[in-house]
Design a protein around this nucleic acid. Structure first.
Lengths: 114, 114
DNA sequence: TTCGAGTGCAACCGTGAGGTTGCAGTCAAT
DNA sequence: ATTGACTGCAACCTCACGGTTGCACTCGAA
């Protein structure tokens, strides 16, 4: 439960502005104010987005003097990716199985795999 | 060079009801009506969600008589997972690099006023 | 000490997403 | 031919989300 919910992570990643923030952070830490200088939105909007991203575990705050910078965390992305891949693979497996059954002749073609 | 659909996929995955639909579909194709029987939402709500999921490439329609069933596609999940992993790994790499620099002896980035 | 950069909080706004109800159309089976 | 299941619009509602403005506060530096 300590981990942020999968759905929350996806919801966080499902916004364009948030991605722009993440990409920007990918090039190095930055504060909300600094990001506001680069993106066409207000500092406060950025701050809200950063809160969402932090909640999702995609970003981490770092104090530097009176500045509050954020750093992009790849680990959560990695974990999410693995989870996604697992689920997707499962669906594909099942789908392949179904197709296999559908294509198998309904005759006396029994006893293939067991 | 992220594909234009990436964010759409995440947005589609960022909803709880949609996940429940996907999980249900993961166990086999089903129509909107059938799904409405299993989930605590209306058939129409499900239909809208299915439209979103189809748009994101996560689901595929299959006609069966007058029924319109949907099937979960693992391939898109797989592709998305790979993309996620790539980006996450890049951030981690950069982060490791920064930490390395910070720990190196008398170097330290003296360029900034700190 | 004063000044300014940077942050935090709160109120407010418009739009769209998630959901519902209602109705009309279509097609398979009896 | 009738019926019933299933689909496809369309209108409508509510509320959270993305965004803004405004103000108060803190703290580092001149």
């Amino acid at each position: 439960m300590s981990e942020p919910g999968l759905v929350a992570v996806f919801a966080a990643l499902g916004d364009d502005t948030r991605w722009r923030i993440l990409i920007a952070l990918g090039e190095g830490e930055a504060s909300a104010s600094a990001l506001a200088g680069r993106l066409p939105v207000t500092r406060q909007a950025i701050a809200k987005h950063l809160a969402v991203l932090e909640e999702a575990g995609l970003v981490e705050p770092v104090r530097v003097g009176r500045e509050l910078r954020y750093r992009a965390l790849g680990s959560e992305l990695g974990r999410t990716a693995r989870e996604l891949d697992r689920i997707g693979a499962e669906w594909e497996r099942r789908l392949a199985l179904i197709k296999r059954l559908a294509e198998s002749p309904a005759d006396g073609e029994a006893s293939s795999s067991a």
